[in-house]
Every structure is written in structure tokens, then in C-alpha cells.
Design a protein around this nucleic acid. Structure first.
Lengths: 217, 217
DNA sequence: ATGTTATTTCTTGTATACAAAAAGATTGAC
DNA sequence: GTCAATCTTTTTGTATACAAGAAATAACAT
């Protein structure tokens, strides 16, 4: 599929913002970026607008665009929204999930367990992600799936952090098993509750991690 | 606040898409629009990108941007998402709402009732909207509030239609009263359930309306 | 006549040029 | 020395010019 240079630049800038290469408040200088990417200002401006529309940057008219990393408060809000949205997906999935999808969830869980036993954090993360993606899809609502995927992706860097918390992977696994059980039973409310707590805990763990970093530093 | 011409154009185009002035699949011709707005292609292109990022249009590289009106399926998905998200807001609001906000909700309801008695559909719509906005805000999650407002706004034209269904306003009022009661009781689950059904009914009414139009035409 | 290929035209995407506004520097007054 | 006002410089926003790719059309062979 044909991609404009502007689109590629937008992706790279997005990645740079996600990875923390740019800090909150940094101004994205059109001219410097143009030089850096060896293009004119036009595609840079187009890419910057994309960042603004994805809420990764803020535009102040006649002043420029500034990267906008979410602060602690907004981050907690996003985690809460994620928890609630994931619960909604679980609720709907409990009413609509197919048997094959249930099998796929169990397969993903097996792989998660293997990854834990092998001490493979990356592997765990991969199959854990797959697990959640299946649930989003089985909610049977393409619009909702798209929205939740956007948020999921946005929180990715922060979610990864808290995986390193000791014992978190094992606890997460246990919760996954409970989710599958509730889905298999077709218990919408129970699925929603487990999933909500599952994500909410991630937010809390992340919160503790941040507090710990502050003290430790 | 300073607004670029591109921003103003984007707003106007948005309004045109919402109002159905552009049909699904219509190509938004940069040159024609530039002539129409008496500007160069540059701000038009910027505005078009905004439409694309708001999901009101689709861009096919090297082909152009085409307006994208949601079809019946996507519309139902959006209503379902709206219902679930509104339920989430209610759930959180039940735990966090202030007494003054509860009073404001009741005030909005009174105004709704007066509007019904006066046969004032526009007035009803206005205060009904205010009612829901208060709940979004009282969820105490700025991120979630922003997201739900976006969806609310997107569904606005379709929600208005179903208000015309006979007896819908009265039914809606009754549901509002139940919502306030549940909120006052601090019953998160009940609030969520009532609100979910409240919005889901709107989706169904809309669906029936569409089916009716097809038959009637 | 039809299917294919070459050419032309039109549209998008990018570069550059220009205008306007804001930030920064310089000069002057006190 | 500090503050203020003006001038310069820088940067954004818009217009125009150019390049490249896609669609439409025309020419040609079968």
C-alpha cells in the first residue's frame, strides 16, 4: 500500500514520543525536523498534525506544536478508562464469544505460562497481548474494538513497566484463567468485574512503581 | 483564541458532513474547495486531514479523500459503544457525584419535564443533553469525559431523529428519574444498568425508524 | 469491434516563496 | 542598572510552483 513520506515521518515521530525520546513540553521544530528527515516543511507539518490529532502533541496557534506526555493524573485516568472499557469488552464477549475463540484464549494462556516458566518476559508480554486482543475482537463490535485498541496501544509503554514487578506475571496469569472461566460460563457481569480489576491492578502497580522511583532517585 | 483559516474550514466541512450535505463516498476535491473558500490548497489539505483523523472521511493515497458516513452496522456499533460508555460514566459517577451535581441533574430534569409539557422538542433536547453532560463530568475522569463527549457529539444527528418517536420523550424522562434515584442511592451497578438501557433504547428506536423509512419510501 | 498500449490530462504530494505574527535583541530614557 | 519601546530575527501560516502517480483518452493491432 502506498504511503506518503508524511505518513512514515508521522509514524517515526510517534514512536519517538512513545519511547520518551521527546520529553513533555518539547517543541517540535519544523525546520530542524525537515532538515533531519531531508524533506521540506510540508510533510513535516502534515506529520505534526497527525501527532496533534492523536493527542501526542498540542498545537498552540502561531507558536508551534509541543509534545504532550501524559502526567500522572491523566495516566491514572487512562488506566481507569482502559479498565472500564476492557470490562465492557468482556461483558459483550461473554455473550458472543465463539468456542474456537475460547480455545484460542486458552492457547494464549498456555503460552503465557510457558513464558513465565522460561522467565521470558517478552514472550509473556506478546501472548498476554494476544489474549486481550482476542477479547476485544470477540466483543463483536468493530467500532469499540478499534477504540480500545488505540488506548491499549497508547498505554503499552506503561503497561510493560509494571510487568517487571515481582510476582506480577504469575498473578496476571491467575486472573486470565478466571476470565476464561467466566467467559466459558457466559457470565457477563463476572467477566467484566474480573477484567476491570485485572487492568485496574496494572494501574495501581504502575502507580506504586512511579512512587518508588521517586523515592529511590 | 487564534484560529487558523484551516481550522475554520475544518469546522465548516465537519458541519457539512454531519448535516448530510456530503454523502457517503463523495470525493472532497481540493481544488474546488479551495476555490469555494477562496484559499489555496494548503489550508484545505490541512482541514481534510482533520476530517480524516476524526473518522469523518477516508484518505486513499494518491486518490483523494472521500467522506465516510457510517452505515447501519457501524451506527449500531456506535450506539452500543455509547450505551456501554455511558454506563461506565454512571458507574463511576455513582461513587463520586457531588450533592450539588445531583441537584443540577434534578434541575435539568425539571426543565425537561417543562419542555415536554410545552411540546418544545428543542428545549427538551437541550436540557436532556445537559443531563448527560453532568453525568459524564461527575465520573471524575477527564480523559473518559473527553472521549465520551466525542462519541456523543458524533451521534447527535441520529439521536435527534429518534426523539421524534411518539412517547419517547416521556419514556426518556422516566428513565432519567430512575438514574437520579440510583445515583442518589450510590448504587453503581444499578446506575450503569439503567443508563445502558436508556441509550440502547435510543439505538433500537433509531433502528426501527430507519427500517420504517425504508418501508415508507 | 475489441483489447491493448501509449499519450495526455488531471490530481495528489512535495518543495519553495511569501506574508504575518510572535519572540528576541537593541537602543534609549530614567 | 532597569524598564520600556522599537527594530530585527525567527517561525508559523498560506500561496504558488513543481514532480510524480493515477485515471481518462486516443491510437493501434488483431
Amino acid at each position: 500500500m502506498g504511503m506518503k513520506r508524511a505518513d512514515i515521518i508521522a509514524q517515526e515521530l510517534e514512536e519517538a514520543v512513545f519511547s520518551g525520546e521527546f520529553q513533555d513540553g518539547d517543541r517540535l521544530d519544523e525546520i530542524k525536523l525537515a532538515a533531519q528527515f531531508n524533506v521540506s516543511r510540508t510533510p513535516i507539518r502534515e506529520a505534526l498534525q497527525k501527532l496533534v490529532n492523536s493527542n501526542l502533541a498540542e498545537q498552540i496557534p502561531r507558536r508551534g506544536v509541543f509534545v504532550r506526555q501524559p502526567g500522572p493524573v491523566e495516566l491514572m485516568e487512562m488506566f481507569e478508562t482502559m479498565a472500564e472499557t476492557e470490562a465492557v469488552c468482556g461483558r459483550l464477549a461473554a455473550m458472543r464469544i465463539s468456542d474456537t475463540a475460547l480455545a484460542e484464549l486458552e492457547a494464549a494462556n498456555r503460552r503465557c505460562k510457558e513464558a513465565i516458566e522460561a522467565g521470558d518476559t517478552d514472550g509473556y508480554y506478546l501472548h498476554n497481548e494476544r489474549f486481550h486482543h482476542i477479547i476485544y475482537h470477540q466483543a463483536g463490535n468493530a467500532y469499540l474494538e478499534c477504540e480500545v485498541l488505540k488506548l491499549h496501544r497508547r498505554l503499552k509503554p506503561y503497561r510493560r513497566m509494571q510487568l517487571r514487578v515481582r510476582g506480577r506475571m504469575e498473578q496476571s496469569m491467575t486472573e486470565h484463567l478466571a476470565v476464561v472461566a467466566a467467559l466459558r460460563a457466559g457470565d457477563a457481569t463476572e467477566t467484566a468485574n474480573i477484567l476491570r480489576d485485572h487492568i485496574a491492578i496494572q494501574g495501581e502497580k504502575f502507580h506504586h512503581l512511579m512512587a518508588g522511583l521517586k523515592i529511590g532517585a
